[in-house]
Design a protein around this nucleic acid. Structure first.
Length: 172
DNA sequence: GCCAACGTTGGC
DNA sequence: GCCAACGTTGGC
């Protein structure tokens, strides 16, 4: 099993959007960079785990963890003339662009902001932190993954009923 | 909004 | 195949 980082602008599609999607799952469409495409097509396997990164956010941050639930298959947005990611050069018999499907596992709360990540010695070599790094699909090493899991803290228990506490607080 | 760092395009 | 021009990404 391998680890990856997927970038998304939260204004466009956030981790909360993934959680809200049917079965907390979405096809990761719209990737139009060959290096990222090659990862999607050749390297990313079912069961691989994914850091969901919010780019162009304040602050940019790792916001959640997801899992690959379906390996590479054609990206339908490449064939849709009304889609921003339409690619008239892509042949439906040999699609240029592929997507994988990912499912939300859990959010990271609070999100791990870029400034915080830069403080972590184990992450010094991380692709994300390299100056000028723009790749939207990046491999993450096991060492980087485990360092981030430590920072992420334990998963929140899911919404158990407060027993001894009165319900004075409203959830957001 | 600025701009550095890339990636892509297209003339030659 | 070179490379200048242009477009995009994304932190700040």
């Amino acid at each position: 099993m391998a680890y990856w980082l997927f970038k998304s602008e939260p204004d466009c599609f956030s981790f909360a959007d993934l959680q809200a999607a049917p079965e907390s799952t979405t096809g990761w469409d719209g990737v139009r960079n060959y290096q990222a495409r090659n990862y999607l097509r050749d390297s990313i396997k079912q069961g691989d785990e994914v850091l969901f990164y919010h780019s162009n956010a304040d602050p940019p941050a790792i916001a959640g963890i997801a899992r690959v639930v379906r390996e590479a298959h054609p990206d339908p947005t490449a064939f849709d003339p009304s889609d921003d990611h339409y690619d008239p050069k892509s042949d439906s018999d040999a699609p240029t662009w592929v997507q994988v499907s990912i499912q939300a596992i859990r959010p990271i709360e609070p999100p791990l902001g870029l400034p915080r990540l830069r403080e972590i010695p184990e992450l010094a070599g991380m692709e994300l932190l390299r100056k000028g790094s723009r790749l939207s699909i990046q491999p993450v090493s096991p060492a980087e993954w485990s360092a981030i899991m430590k920072l992420a803290g334990p998963a929140k228990p899911k919404q158990s009923k407060p027993r001894s506490k009165p319900r004075t607080e409203r959830s957001k």
